[in-house]
Amino acid sequence: MKARFLGIDDLTDVPSVAVVVDVMRAFTVAAWAFARGAEKIVLAGSLDDARALKDRHPDWVAVKDGPPAPGFDAVNSPGLLRSVDLAGRTVVQKTTAGTVGALAVKESELVLCAGFVVAEATARLLRARGSDRVTFVVTGEDGRADEDLACAQYIAGRVTDPAGTDAAGFLGRAARSRAAAELAEGVRQGVHPDDVALCLEADRFPFAMVAASEGPLMILRPCAIPQGPDGDPV
């Protein structure tokens, strides 16, 4: 597999296969939402779009970055979301980087959204598909976020050399990242003390997350990847 690692603003074409990475915290939150029972996640293009969707669908759960705000039910924190019952619910998510990155590649044939918590399942899906060219979209810090790059490189390694790619070094880089420091030091708002640790749980969930256009909306859904005794998809 030939992998390239680009920031959102570096995208000059429509990739066939795109893996959009936001470790801290959009796609860790998305994975937790599915683990808590959410049926689907609508990736909103703006805060106004998210509010409008919430107004039209009062039963949907709207999530945003930063502190609580009118029109939103929750903030983009895995530590806070993990106790919320989302069984059968639709979540609307708008974040600074992750949702922006996913919408930037919405014309791609396959769009996966990922963090460390779904890294192995994402790699298994890519292996099962036999993708020979994959664009990893590093969403944070204009493409320079080392936690996102580390996760992208970990997934790429698990695709091409699963036996020789261990999570420890990649997680260490993410733990030392600027985003991790800002979350730990309270620079960012809407934070739970466990957020960094939850973002650094490699391969916690057995599903990948696939985004696709459904009518006018970009919808993220979980995709279970059955695994055989040899570790390969079945």
Rank of each mutant, 00 (worst) to 15 (best):
D203T: 12
V42E: 02
R144W: 06
D65M: 01
F5M: 14
R25E: 07
V23A: 07
G66P: 07
D22T: 05
A212K: 14
R133E: 09
K94N: 12
A104D: 14
E201F: 00
V111S: 07
I155P: 00
I8W: 09
R158K: 15
G130A: 14
A211Q: 04
E185F: 00
G37N: 11
T90M: 11
R51P: 08
A97T: 12
T165I: 09
P70V: 13
G190S: 11
D22Y: 07
A104P: 03
L81Q: 11
V21Q: 01
H192D: 15
P226W: 01
V187E: 08
G115E: 02
V92W: 07
T165K: 14
V61P: 00
A44G: 07
A208D: 04
V118M: 01
V21E: 03
A102L: 15
A35Q: 12
A202P: 11
F72D: 10
S16C: 06
F72A: 09
T96Q: 14
R89P: 05
A35M: 00
S108P: 07
R56V: 06
L112A: 08
V210D: 07
A26H: 15
A180T: 01
A156H: 14
A30E: 05
A179Q: 08
A175I: 01
A30I: 06
A97M: 13
F116C: 09
N76S: 08
A26S: 11
G157H: 13
E120N: 13
V111G: 06
A180Q: 02
F34M: 06
V137N: 10
D194R: 02
R82P: 03
P78M: 08
A104F: 04
G71H: 11
L112M: 12
Q189C: 12
I219R: 00
A30Y: 02
F170A: 01
A38P: 04
E201A: 15
V100Y: 09
A62G: 09
D132W: 15
G186C: 10
V23K: 02
R221A: 10
S46E: 02
F205Y: 14
V20K: 01
R176V: 10
K54D: 04
G164W: 01
